[in-house]
Design a protein around this nucleic acid. Sequence first.
DNA 1: CCCGATCGGTTGCATATCGAAACCAATACC
DNA 2: GGTATTGGTTTCGATATGCAACCGATCGGG
Lengths: 166, 166
Amino acid sequence: MSATDPGWTDPSCPVARTLDLVGDRWSLLVIRDAMDGARSFTEFQRRTGIARNILTDRLRRLTAHGLLARRAAPSGRRQEYVLTDAGRDLFPVIVTLRQWGERHAFEPGEAHSTLVDQHGDPVPELTPLGADGSVLDTGTTRVRKAGQRRTLSGGSGQARSPENSP
Amino acid sequence: MSATDPGWTDPSCPVARTLDLVGDRWSLLVIRDAMDGARSFTEFQRRTGIARNILTDRLRRLTAHGLLARRAAPSGRRQEYVLTDAGRDLFPVIVTLRQWGERHAFEPGEAHSTLVDQHGDPVPELTPLGADGSVLDTGTTRVRKAGQRRTLSGGSGQARSPENSP
DNA sequence: CCCGATCGGTTGCATATCGAAACCAATACC
DNA sequence: GGTATTGGTTTCGATATGCAACCGATCGGG
């Protein structure tokens, strides 16, 4: 993306490209806190507990990649970091990470924070659906590689191999 | 989680806990490839391009955390790594990462792989919806902290602060 | 104006993690 | 038996991370 870009890990895979940008230990937590209202260096540092030199680097990197924008604070002096449209668009990613954590990273009775809507109601589970409204999973989807045109494997029944998905 | 667990980065936040488990440079790419049919050490190595010692560590770690299971291959000898239910349940995370990448990490005309359903149709965008079907974003949601009961801020209008979300 | 506190970093240094390549044991193939 | 493949482990140099100290630019009093 920039001049000093070492290139993508896997140029044709959108998952890999996304992880090239935010797939480290801290970036998504910074994004999470930005979504939760954090704006200042100190606030990000306090919430994440990240080392300050690393935070400096992450804020710069996210800004360089267009996920955050650095601008003068409305209240006079100092600047702040705010999400760009691209950064805000990571919302579904944060939501699915959160929901997976709620399902699998907590003991049954254990307390955790919850994402709620404007009425205070918990946000429903986010599930991939097909164009026809059917629930999709790793068994009913597959990855079509970069330049490929759709396979000509008839219209019904089992595709080709039992392998394949994201 | 285990005896040698250094503890969670942020114990009450599901996002942070999830990232504690899969929030490194490679784990989610391993999961991605597992979803796409990879089973063997060599296959994971070939697809991701990860260093072999690191792959050894990631497979062990993901297995230890219950995202992968190591079992004897059906065809006689050797073992293989397969997704557990918890691992498969990361599907929505992979999908949202992929969709974000498609929207923001590619130039307009640039080719990329695509996730398609059993009919070969592209998987639709995954959008967080409220219980009432309204589209949710960082502006219409907020995080309710661990032990907290719902706020008593009336029922309509603006909540309290313009801050807040995941 | 001077004092102390806060913000937003930077710098050095120790440690942890990663990556590339070499090495190895156990099959499988010919 | 000889060779290739699979699934690792080991070693070692390169990076990335964390911690703590330091610093300049405000800001808020007195």
